[in-house]
Each structure stands twice: as structure tokens, then as C-alpha cells.
Simulated scan of single mutants.
Amino acid sequence: MLRDYLMSAAIFSLFSFVWFGWAQETLAQKWRWPVAIASGIAFLIACYSGYLSYHHWHQASALTNQLNYYGYLIFVVVELILAGGGAFLLSKKQQSANIAPWISLVVGSHFIALQFVFRDPSFYILAALMIGISIYTLCRRMAAKSALVGVGNGIILLSFAIYNLSRFWLY
């Protein structure tokens, strides 16, 4: 649905911007400019998609259905509890390097559930990519986990934002 494509583009690009920012925590100096440019592109797409969303707000949406809307809210609340609770426990256990991959794992997993709300099979691909990066990073001993997860998720989410924006224009 048009509004859902635009909102997905806005949300995915905004969170792409956030993941690129988190990557800066442990990012190698030579990657700072390319990631900063990608972050800027994500921010611009978020603003543009948000503007278009505002102007198409009264278009149909999967969230118009009350059951879908409540399902969406439940998935988001559960995601926040799992992500925050896991981050808190990892911090307490002196495992803060694993917080970014943990959050990525939770966020990636929530796209599986959201596919049932939005009926968009591309969410399975998005979930698989984010979960894959999360598991790969959790299994590696490295100092720059937030850089790998941040850049990886930034690219993935920016790609899906562009994909959804193109779906809007081709609809």
C-alpha cells in the first residue's frame, strides 16, 4: 500500500542513519567519510520519505485494520523490552561490545513478525540479512562489533528504504 511503502522508506532510512551513527563508535578512520556520506544520504531519504508520507497520510495502510494495528504495537513493545533488557544484561556482564549485535538480532527478528502485519514478503529477506549480520558478529572475537553491525545494517536498511521508495513511485 502506498502509505506503507512511504512510511517503510522513512523509517528504514531513519534507522539506517542511526545504525551508521552507531558504527562510528569503533569505525576505522578510513571508513569515516564513506559512512558519513551514506549517513547523510539516509537522512535525506528519511526527510523526503517523511514529507511524502505526510502528503499521502490518508492513503490505505495495513495499520488501518485494528487487528494489524494492535499486532504492530505488541511486536514493537516486545521488541523494545527484549532489546533493552538484553542490552542491560550485557552491560551488567561487561559484554557491552555485544549490545549492537544483540539489538540487531532483536530488530531483525521483529521483521519476521511484522511480515504478518504488512503482508510484505520482502520483510523475510530484511530479517534474514539483519539476523545473519548479528549472528556472524556475535560469533566473532573483535573489538569493532558495532562498526560491522552498524555499517551492515545501515546499508541493508538504506537499500530497503530505496526499494520501498521505488515501489511507491512504481505503484
Rank of each mutant, 00 (worst) to 15 (best):
D4E: 07
D4H: 04
M7V: 15
M7Y: 08
M7N: 10
S8Q: 08
A10H: 02
I11G: 01
F12I: 02
F15R: 01
F17I: 03
V18M: 06
F20V: 00
F20S: 02
W22H: 06
W22M: 09
W22S: 03
W22F: 13
A23Q: 01
Q29R: 14
Q29H: 13
P34N: 12
P34R: 12
I41S: 03
A42S: 15
F43C: 03
L44T: 10
I45G: 03
I45P: 02
C47Y: 08
C47R: 05
Y48E: 11
S49T: 00
S49C: 05
G50N: 06
G50E: 02
L52A: 01
Y54K: 11
H58Y: 12
Q59T: 12
A60Q: 13
A60T: 11
A60N: 11
S61E: 05
L63P: 03
L67E: 08
N68S: 15
N68R: 10
N68Q: 10
Y69V: 00
Y70S: 05
Y72V: 05
F75M: 06
F75S: 11
V76T: 11
V77S: 11
V77E: 09
V77A: 15
V78M: 09
V78Q: 05
E79G: 07
E79S: 11
I81H: 09
L82R: 04
A83I: 09
G86F: 10
A87E: 01
L89E: 12
L89F: 12
L90E: 04
S91A: 10
S91G: 11
Q94F: 12
Q95H: 13
Q95C: 12
N98F: 05
I99P: 02
V106P: 01
V107L: 14
G108L: 04
H110W: 04
F111T: 02
I112M: 11
I112G: 00
A113F: 14
A113S: 15
L114E: 14
F116M: 11
F118H: 00
F118W: 08
R119S: 14
P121T: 14
P121K: 08
S122C: 07
F123D: 06
F123G: 01
Y124E: 07
I125C: 09
L126I: 07
A127I: 02
M130H: 07
I131F: 05
G132A: 09
I133C: 13
S134W: 00
I135R: 06
Y136P: 11
T137C: 04
L138F: 09
A143D: 14
A144S: 14
V149F: 02
V149M: 09
G154W: 02
L158T: 02
S159C: 13
F160H: 06
F160W: 07
I162Q: 00
I162P: 01
I162M: 08
L165P: 00
S166V: 15
W169L: 15
L170N: 13
L170H: 13
